[in-house]
Design a protein around this nucleic acid. Sequence first.
DNA 1: TTTCATTTGTCCGTATGTATT
DNA 2: AAATACATACGGACAAATGAA
Lengths: 83, 83
Amino acid sequence: MTAFDPDSSTPAYRQIAAILRERIADGTYPPARMLPSIERLRQEYGVARNTARKVLDTLVDEGLAYTEPGMGTYVMDAEHERG
Amino acid sequence: MTAFDPDSSTPAYRQIAAILRERIADGTYPPARMLPSIERLRQEYGVARNTARKVLDTLVDEGLAYTEPGMGTYVMDAEHERG
DNA sequence: TTTCATTTGTCCGTATGTATT
DNA sequence: AAATACATACGGACAAATGAA
């Protein structure tokens, strides 16, 4: 289990991304499940919008999630797999 | 030749990224050449630091460039090719 | 060693636009 | 129309890395 520590030398956005990555891997967030929104992450971890944003961007860049504008960011699934 | 138009519906960071992408492709910026710094892009296109930043991030994400912290962002070359 | 300038890294706050429900 | 959620962009601040003087 990974915990968030705002005083760690590891950047906040990487810590939070690691936590979500872990939950995707263990099935807490299964494929096609919507991940916490930017606003939700902001509230939960006390970070700025831009920081929460970067968390989701990171996961999308890694191919672990995809974004539907106006909808949310979801765990990657077979229907959205990218080549 | 692509020009930058701040009033275009195409986001500024994408327009500028397209310009740099073009210059990488045509050899204006050859492999291992340092790309314009964030500050340089800011001055040249009149955009905010974060916007200029996103331009370089985009090219790095695409594998067209790589960053050396404290040094600059360079055009991808054989020595830095990623698998 | 120290200092300085340059450049990237992270983070905050705010504003506005676009898309979907 | 309203609520939710992402997209873009501005501004500012401070830290860390590097290289040069």
